[in-house]
Design a protein around this nucleic acid. Structure first.
Length: 272
DNA sequence: AGCCAGGACAAGT
DNA sequence: ACTTGTCATGGC
């Protein structure tokens, strides 16, 4: 990775095994929008405009001090080339990884990931995005003309399911409220989860109503960077029953979550 | 118009 | 321990 500063922009070159578009639009994050080749998103209280040309990333109007934050968010320091090499150990994984080469598991904010995947349950991606957008606009800090931060637990702490009616999350509103209250009362601690083993972390999250195995796994994979986690949604279950009735090959061990993301996106985008 | 959606949960076998 | 109905809403 090489970094240059040009006209207030930051240019990062020699970025290997990374596709910005695929990583932002593969169903793991719900707040990124693309316009004329430029992706816009918000993480914490930071808004980012970024685009990619081959192995070059352009961070628009970005302060130097903020670059490490985004390097970490996109997990650019991790050796994905090496990881994918080991993951491509059979025909299906080989195809999935080749077709969608460069998807990285983003390192999202824990609360945002948890809340987003509570909202995701029995829901479709366009609508998930809409609900989250309304949640941010109604309850998050406005950080620019057209950008709102994801609301903090504290900002949501006084709300009832009825107060959440405008975001039109349906039956999921009461789940959001339960998550907020348990975290507020420290019945569930997102801070503590970071130090727990996978199984314990999962049990901790599953104390929350509306958080079953799948939602907990998604939160751990996308929000806590537990890369060995393997969330099983309907698409991945199809892959498992169709291609891996006897179980996954051993090469995915340690990075099951990454394998899962490729298999999910590959299977979901298949037309036949 | 009707089916389905990156599920969870309770109730029924 | 598995199976089924229900939940609220809107995208297609």
């Amino acid at each position: 990775m090489k970094v240059d500063f040009v006209d207030g922009n930051i240019i990062v070159t020699d970025v290997e095994c990374f596709s910005l578009a695929l990583s932002l639009d593969c169903g793991q994050a719900f707040r990124w929008r693309q316009n004329a080749g430029v992706w816009r998103g918000v993480v914490k209280d930071k808004e980012l405009f970024v685009s990619q040309e081959k192995e070059k990333l352009i961070f628009y109007n970005l302060k130097k001090d903020d670059l490490p934050f985004w390097i970490k968010y996109f997990d650019l320091e991790r050796d994905y080339r090496g990881i994918l090499d080991t993951l491509m150990c059979d025909e299906s994984l080989n195809t999935a990884c080749r077709e969608y080469y460069g998807i990285r598991i983003l390192r999202q904010e824990p609360w945002e990931a948890l809340c987003s995947f509570i909202i995701s349950s029995n829901n479709n991606i366009p609508r998930i995005k809409g609900i989250i957008e309304r949640l941010c606009r109604l309850f998050g800090n406005r950080i620019s003309e057209e950008a709102w931060a994801f609301p903090t637990v504290k900002q949501l702490s006084h709300l009832s399911p009825e107060d959440l009616a405008p975001i039109r999350a349906g039956f999921r509103s009461k789940y959001i409220v339960d998550a907020v209250q348990k975290i507020n009362k420290e019945e569930v601690s997102l801070e503590r989860i970071k130090g727990l083993a996978y199984e314990d972390a999962k049990l901790e999250l599953m104390k929350i109503k509306g958080v079953g195995e799948k939602v907990a796994d998604c939160a751990l994979l996308y929000g806590f960077n537990y890369l060995e986690t393997f969330p099983k949604d309907v698409w991945v279950k199809r892959v498992l029953s169709e291609l891996y009735p006897e179980g996954l090959p051993e090469c995915v061990n340690g990075y099951k979550g990454i394998a899962q993301q490729y298999l999910f996106h590959w299977r979901r985008n298949r037309t036949n």
